[in-house]
Design a protein around this nucleic acid. Structure first.
Lengths: 331, 331
DNA sequence: CATTCTGTCGCAACCGGTTGCAAAACGTCA
DNA sequence: TGACGTTTTGCAACCGGTTGCGACAGAATG
């Protein structure tokens, strides 16, 4: 059926080793031999089997990409960059959908079965236990968008959520809002860190966690809590949009009567009509960082767990007023 | 390093064949033998190598998922469903990013190298030539969201774009708009079909193609053409949002003075504040259809190229008025 | 008890490349 | 021309499962 190494060798009248070497970069082959093999290979339409190669070298060039939440527009950027950057390094993403109901043990078994060279978890909601389980299975694992901790037990590339919380609080106070915090699911470490930083500047701020990082969850939550504060830090852009819709439906004008600052800076945050002030996460840097790190761990499996942290920046747009409303405050 | 079949066989005191059979569903093993092998396997932490298995069976259980446009929010749904459905059938998605600058021949070579069992192209902008090239390489290929043609040369699962165009034209006329068409890149067959259907009811409608399926492209195009018609069929939801922003910036109120009907029904189309009237594509059905078809082709490679077509439905929301504005028309 | 049938098990070849080792070929210099 | 160093090449074992075939055990039948 498919043409193999031996077919090519036979046609070129050389050994299989010679054929293998012409397709292995850096192997010792004379130009004459290479040309001869290439000619036969082309005539036969030969394509080396990565699978067979993986068999003997022990490297599949496969990277498991584990995703839990496909609903967030941010993931589009993540997929695009991951695939592009892996491809540039000759690696391939094996996509794994780790839904809520899915058994992580099963996902691990499957990735072990394929003998993936490494795993990158792209999720802020995966618990540390999950990440640890992957790493414990002996596969080089990097948790991107994961929790930054002082003594990590798994490689992490993430952002400074605490500082992001501080930035948000400072901005809200500077502009004369009464700060409030609307987070995502309480179990997510990202939410915990952001609220911690936020509280450093706004210790008495009202705090509430929505049930999910979705529009509806933001809408529902904000409908109930909209009077508890005037300037809201929402831990996700989509959540922010839901919250803003609720604020408007309650008759509160953004940004005059209520301010919103989001998180992620997804593409549509900058669209006219949305124009969301938000905190930008350096997605590109995190992803290159994660890929760099996972390849480094592949080369040196016993590397101690390492954390790479990137800063976030404020994207000023239209959902935060520029300063406290003096006239109205006095009126 | 890793524990193999032979390690398990040795520990259980049986042949490697016995071990292989206990892990092969449907193979002939006695319950006693199975228990014995399982015990040894568990003690050793054995995980069968899918790679090695692929070597002898010739099936990798890998499906190449080829994507060209990661920017469209629709893709989130596509990724989620594809991964979930493939996983349910014991297949795994190998994600391929076929950027504009990427050489399709390279992508094909890579997929052949991994000996993927099948390929699903998830893109409406991939040309027929690309799809054909994949199929010609001997890999079972299905073009999902692809062009529906009378005599296909590759398996296609798509929607009735012509009928979708008709639906849009009928709605716009019924509601008293002067119809106009804003399409995506002219090379996309989806755009061509939609405009064909549209023209059946609105033969003299103004037509224009935006440069891409993006917000900015929609904004730019509509800024220039907004006076050419009053009811616009935009061939993509994101494009619609850009177009609507342009209409508003030009002082045209939606839906009274200008109507917009989008395409895709991406999740955010239903959000308050967006509330886009649009034509829904049955994403779930297309994806199950594509997976069904590709597995069928895997089992029977010589199947003649087949087309599966699904209908679209109108989602009535707030960007189309309910009927012609009589009062104003007379005024 | 002999015979046949069914179900289980092991042997060994095979899937398609890779690579250490040694032999062969080549180039260089005296 | 011969000795010596450097490439280049082929042999063959190996990576980790799978499976056709024959051997064998136990059950069923005459």
């Amino acid at each position: 059926m498919t043409v193999t190494l031996r077919d090519v060798a036979a046609r070129a009248g050389v050994s299989t080793a010679a054929v293998s070497r012409t397709f292995t970069p850096g192997a010792s082959v004379s130009p004459r031999m290479r040309a001869r093999v290439l000619k036969a290979a082309e005539a036969l339409g030969y394509q080396p089997s990565t699978i067979a190669s993986a068999m003997s070298t022990g490297r599949t060039k496969l990277i498991g990409l584990v995703v839990t939440n496909f609903r967030n527009p941010l993931m589009l950027d993540v997929f695009e960059r991951f695939t592009a950057q892996l491809q540039d390094r000759g690696l391939r993403p094996l996509l794994v959908n780790l839904r809520d109901d899915a058994d992580p043990a099963e996902a691990i078994a499957m990735l072990r079965g394929y003998r993936v060279d490494g795993v990158v978890i792209a999720s802020s909601t995966v618990t540390r236990g999950f990440a640890r389980a992957f790493a414990a299975s002996g596969i080089p694992t990097v948790h991107s968008f994961g929790p930054v901790t002082p003594s990590p037990d798994v490689h992490v590339v993430g952002i400074d959520n605490v500082e992001a919380g501080r930035i948000a609080a400072r901005e809200l106070l500077k502009r004369g809002y009464k700060p409030g915090f609307l987070g995502g699911p309480g179990t997510a470490s990202s939410t915990q860190d952001r609220v911690a930083g936020f509280s450093q500047y706004a210790p008495r701020a009202y705090k509430h966690n929505a049930e999910a990082y979705t529009f509806q969850a933001g809408y529902d939550a904000m409908s109930r809590i909209c009077r508890r504060a005037t300037g809201w830090f929402c831990a996700d852009d989509v959540l922010s949009l839901g919250a803003m819709a609720a604020l408007r439906d309650r008759g509160l004008r953004v940004p005059d009567q209520a301010g919103v600052i989001g998180f992620n800076d997804m593409e549509m945050a900058s669209w006219p009509g949305i124009d969301l002030t938000t905190i930008r996460m350096p997605t590109g840097a995190i992803i290159s960082g994660a890929i760099d790190l996972v390849t480094a761990v592949m080369d040196e499996p016993d590397r101690p767990p390492e954390t790479r942290m990137f800063p976030c920046t404020l994207m000023e747009r239209g959902t935060l007023r520029s300063s406290a409303p003096k006239s109205r405050a006095r009126a």
